[in-house]
């Protein structure tokens, strides 16, 4: 069987490896090299310029705006999403005594909450550009109907409101997924722990703080990494939804949008690659910090 074994292994591995090397590994490797050149897309015309592109990034005010906006997204979107997600997931389990059983209808709630997760971010962005429309949109319509017409605004056209509007869309589209994820994690907590907490006289908040939260910590950590990566992206929503795109005064510019524009509209491929490398290191730093920060304080539970 030895002969057949090697033939099978070669047949199983080589096609996927070729695909992987051609379309994934080689582009990643080339990007690092291109970021050190002034390439504008003409074959053979890439000159090595060292760290020039990176120096220019620091002086590119639109890119600095993009970094600031991504940083704000990175702080706000995961925190708000996880807070709402954990809140709703624990609410789903508040049936029965001591916060451990599903409330009636929790299945139906989870079905509805999950809806946005299934939609392309483009669909979500087009939908919300209608919702935010100043004259015909759902949001201003609702405010006027409630007699709060004074709060109606041009959400996406105002420099101070555009980024929060984008954040709200990202939170709206991801909460459901994390409710389901956290809910599954809470289901995995042994019921005895909740019973013990109730016997000790712990209330709802104390049970959440001392039982639920430490035991879903791993899941929350994974959620932080996933949401952080999504917040460092935010490309589709910003590109489809905000004016420009990139918002008034670069209010919603993000790194991905800068990269896309520099590469495929201005043809500055070397410069755009430097942005890609910057984004890569941001992602890497995020993942290392999030996963490390959690390991230091893991809770022993068995």
């Amino acid at each position: 069987m030895r002969h057949g074994r090697w033939r099978f292994l070669a047949g199983a591995l080589i096609p996927a490896l070729v695909l992987h090397v051609v379309f994934v590994l080689s582009p990643y490797a080339q990007a690092f090299y291109l970021s050190l050149t002034d390439w504008t897309g003409v074959a053979g015309e890439a000159h090595f310029v060292g760290a020039d592109n990176y120096r220019r990034l620091a002086g590119d005010s639109l890119f600095v705006d993009a970094v600031r906006n991504n940083a704000l997204l990175l702080v706000v979107v995961p925190l708000v999403t996880i807070a709402i997600g954990l809140f709703l997931a624990s609410m789903l389990h508040l049936g029965g005594r001591g916060g451990r059983r599903a409330v009636a209808g929790s299945g139906a709630y989870q079905i509805i909450y999950f809806f946005p997760q299934l939609l392309s971010l483009v669909v979500v962005a087009v939908l919300w550009s209608f919702v935010y429309n100043p004259n015909t949109g759902l949001l201003n319509g609702a405010l006027r109907a409630l007699g709060l017409g004074g709060m109606a605004a041009s959400w996406l056209a105002s420099p101070s409101l555009a980024l929060p509007a984008v954040m709200a869309v990202l939170v709206w589209s991801s909460v459901g997924f994390y409710v389901v994820l956290f809910s599954a994690a809470i289901d995995g907590i042994p019921v005895e722990l909740f019973e013990a907490a109730v016997l000790d006289g712990a209330g709802g908040w104390a049970t959440f703080r001392n039982v639920t939260l430490p035991l879903v910590r791993d899941t929350v950590q994974v959620a932080f990494v996933y949401l952080g990566i999504a917040a460092l992206d935010a490309f589709a929503v910003v590109q489809v939804m905000t004016v420009g795109p990139g918002g008034p005064d670069g209010a919603t510019e993000v790194i991905g949008l800068s990269l896309y524009r520099n590469a495929f509209q201005y043809g500055k491929f070397g410069y755009a690659s430097a942005m890609g490398v910057a984004l890569f290191f941001a992602t890497l730093t995020l993942a290392v910090f999030a996963l490390r920060g959690g390991r230091r304080s893991t809770v022993e539970a068995s």
Binding site: F23, V24, A31, F235, I255, G256, L279
Partner: peptide, 30 residues
């Protein structure tokens, strides 16, 4: 077999790279 782990990590490592990084060279490869 020899190289098993290397091939595995070659695939899995790609999950942690943002697609934006590959975007420009990928366009020219295609």
């Amino acid at each position: 077999f020899r190289g098993n782990r290397i091939i595995y990590y070659t695939f899995v490592a790609a999950m942690f790279f943002p697609v934006f990084l590959a975007l420009v060279p990928l366009f020219f490869v295609v």
